[in-house]
Design a binder for these strands. Sequence first.
RNA 1: AGCCGGGCUUAU
Length: 315
Amino acid sequence: VVTYTALISGFCKRGKMTQAFEILEKMQRHGCNPSVMTYTSIINGLCLVGKVEQALGWLKKMHDKGCSPDIYSFSVVMDGLCKVGRTDEANELLTEALGRGLRPTIVSYNSLFYGYFKEGRTKKALSLLDEISHKDVEPTIITYTILVHGLVKWRRIQEALRLHDEITDKGYVLDHPTMSALVHGLCRKGNSKDASRLFRKIQDMDQVHDHHTYYMVIRAHLLAGEMQEALTLFTEMVRNNCNPKTRIYNEVIYKLCVNGRIENAINMLNFMMENGRKPNVTSYNILLEQLYKEGRMDTARQLCAAAMKRGLFSD
RNA sequence: AGCCGGGCUUAU
């Protein structure tokens, strides 16, 4: 049963439901009864591919087959409902689970938070936060990320920042998703200065940013036309072994071209290759277009040849 | 063996 369930879970997580069901059938043919975990995996998979109705059906079905859903099973369906904007139903499901004597976990509440924020019901989310503070469940860093992200989504940046202070005061160590949710909020406000200040503040607390967070702040600088700041962060990112994706390189190269710094742009292309990142067709197109505009056909031809040597533009 | 969180809306 364990092996079958592991297999099924693997397929479900990748959304390969046909294959998951095949295994389920096979295990039953071999006289193995699916366990709670088996059913929960299936239900999870159905939610992931957007078939929440079927997930609800299976929740009933497992019960009918004498396999009582546990709090995980309920949480999975709740999460599925919350993700598609059916948070009220998720809440009812939680009530049902509690009525059956199951103990709620923070995960169930996390899904509700996610859902309320998604639907723009911030008040509801915040009152839920207040409600669980009287209960026997502790918020985790994931809870806080959902809250920060939700607040930021509805432009309640100040509250998000306040919450961030609260979290740090409580001694939680922010992880990458939390940091980037927060930084994202400031970037969205179009406030590259504040974003960059927060970015530095986090670094001063000896936290290391990952490439998501670098990317956001670099983008914010690029959009604001702050080329120098963008480049500084960019080199810092490379130095910190946060290998930027081709896309970020291309955005920087593009900006350099637009600013008439084509030499720097070409250097950036070389820099990119030195750092083990392969330019793609777009990288070359950006540069070629600019070279054409400037009428530098020779350089363009050389670049084109170099690209073809690397197997691009083969057609 | 099973549940929850972050960026990319116009880089060519």
